[in-house]
Design a protein around this nucleic acid. Structure first.
Lengths: 200, 200
DNA sequence: ACCTGAACACCGTTCAAGT
DNA sequence: ACCTGAACACCGTTCAAGT
């Protein structure tokens, strides 16, 4: 052993991320470990540290891919006609993504950096881009409104849809005997926007 | 050693839960371990297993206390005059609780049972009771509406407020340059209810 | 240069053995 | 009866040593 060079650094990285994604998708965040990923790709743990800074970094890289996939999904909703319909399509797309990949989606929001370590800039930028998509869809709906109100509305709808997805994905909705998430997303967006447009 | 009987089972339980709460409150979910709790109360790990079924059970017991504290906090908001004001008070109380005890609050929603093990009944009942508080506050506001609509509204508002708390507590709001959570909670509740009442 | 294998300091959980 | 202490099978991380 030692000095195998069966795979380039990039290939190693790709293999590790795929294996890790697989574990999370099938068994969830807490089943993920460096040792399992190493075994899955046929290397020892030590090798992973040649490719990732540490476990946090590995998780962050998976989350980055999840965020990119989510972006791609939301981009499809941007084909909808401008207006409330497009905002609704975004909400449904978000819910669809969350319910189809519940474990990867949850990891994005549950992972916490080791105390003190801030999220890297490129990560914050990916999140900001998602907010931007919602703001853009909202602009035509609230075109006569001041900018801060648009920002507030985008965040209310975003976090509202996010909260609904969470309760749906963690099965806290059905536990309490509830309409399906899609109905809640629709009610939230339609009524909230109606209220906003009806107000002064 | 062995056979100390310095403390009754109940005292042991109480001491362990207090120590564990302290660790979570100060350092978060991931700093919690059976060994740390044991050390903090001056016993060995083995002793904890005389009082808790396992680590999951210990966490569940802490979460139960957090849910009770949350219930108590929301109960105070029930003193507000009936109507939108009371719903708003509930939303603010929820946000207040989440921001004051961010780490304990998060643990309630992030903890997952070991694969397959369902949440115990008494736990589901505590959550259902919280939903009930929101439904009750909403009833006078939507008194002319059919029951399913009330349920939907309660869940939309609950998960919306929850989502706002999450983004606030995990600092994903300020990262993206946002109005404070309280403004979002108010916008959500006021405009959503306005929309609902304006509709047919 | 690349990768291993063993070490270190941790985990949750169990249970024979001591008092 | 009550609690310990050691064991077991795991962790993340590091790094001297092998090829």
């Amino acid at each position: 052993m030692a000095r195998r060079s069966d795979h380039s650094r990039d290939e190693l990285r790709e293999m590790a991320l795929n294996a890790a994604e697989d574990i999370v998708a099938k068994e969830g965040y807490f089943a993920l470990s460096t040792r399992r990923v190493a075994t899955a790709i046929g290397y020892t743990v030590g090798t992973l540290y040649l490719v990732f800074r540490n476990f946090d970094d590995l998780i962050l890289q998976i989350n980055a891919r999840t965020l990119d996939a989510l972006s791609a999904r939301l981009a499809r909703a941007e084909g909808e006609p401008e207006g409330v319909a497009r905002v609704l399509a975004l909400g449904r797309a978000y819910l669809g993504f969350a319910t189809e990949r519940p474990r990867l989606w949850r990891m994005v929001f549950e992972h916490r950096m080791a105390a003190g370590a801030p999220l890297p800039d490129w990560y914050g930028e990916k999140v900001a881009r998602l907010f931007g998509v919602v703001e853009n869809a909202l602009r035509p709906v609230l075109q006569d409104r001041p900018d801060p109100e648009l920002m507030t509305a985008a965040r209310v709808i975003w976090s509202g849809v996010h909260g609904i997805c969470l309760l749906e994905v963690t099965e806290r909705l059905e536990a309490v005997g509830s309409p399906p998430g899609a109905a809640l997303v629709e009610s939230l967006i339609v009524q909230y926007l109606r209220g906003l447009r009806a107000s002064a």
